[in-house]
Amino acid sequence: MDLLLQTLVNGILIGGVYLIITLGFNLAFGVLGVIDFAVGEWVMLGGFTGYWLNHYLGLDPLLFLPVTFVVFVIVGALVYPMLARLLKGRQHARLLMVFVFTFGLSTLLKGGALTAWGFNQRAMDSFFSARSVELAGVYMPQIRLVAFFFGVLITVAVAWMLYRTRFGLSVRAVAQDEGKARLMGVNTNRVAALVYALYAGLTGMAGVLIGVIYTVTPQMGVQYTIFAFFIAVLAGLGYVPGVLLAALLLGLIQAFVAVYIGSAYSLLIVFLSLYLILLVAPRGILNRGRA
């Protein structure tokens, strides 16, 4: 019984980690209509930003979340024009070009990080690391609780932005039909640029949290690219509220499979369930994303 509850908690908290990576990614996909294969590398660079700031300033890495956000918003704003050039260019196969661009960017960033910082694993500790909250025999790692609530908080903030603000309405309009939105007087290029910057900022912050929970290495990105893609598909591509559910579902599947079936099968079962869910609901679990 204790183990069951503990596994439930573990799963939800793993889901919290996924939530913070995927939120911005799914939003960016919704608006730009392209997969950014560099998502894992933004996580990695976010992790290193937190690590180096922590290393040189000695303050708790979580205190650097706002700085990291700002830095990556700027980075995103600088990268976006290159993406936009490809997206709006006159070439054929523009989506393929974007794919190649983000894939190349990912390789470049990973290679650059490897050259600059080497292959070593680096760990950084927060005040909340190596502490847990015990409740009726169930242990909740404090740092993961922090990450989880942070994830929920930014999900609520992003949802509020999308459903309660003028900018959010234009974001949703652009995501659904860029052409129509433009005829309504929406500056679609500006919306896309801001969304990409926001996505980069959120993903950079995710990197700091992931770096504190696990470790930071130049090669950590790949698996998060896969998970982000996976959850975005499960959530319904471009449908932000689905992300919360999909992230939790993935976390729970992983935790329960590891404990009750065998961890070796977890990826297999995760992909099998994705396949089955998409068979039933091709637009994601809530059937609201892009087909």
Partner: peptide, 30 residues
């Protein structure tokens, strides 16, 4: 338990803890 190296380790650690072994042994890379 055999696990993919990239997986989150908390579920398996929780499982081991619930069994209260005297020794926990791990086979892996650093």
């Amino acid at each position: 338990d055999i696990t993919p190296p990239d997986a989150d380790m908390t579920p398996l650690i929780s499982k081991a803890r619930s069994l209260k072994p005297d020794v926990l042994a791990v086979g892996g890379e650093p």
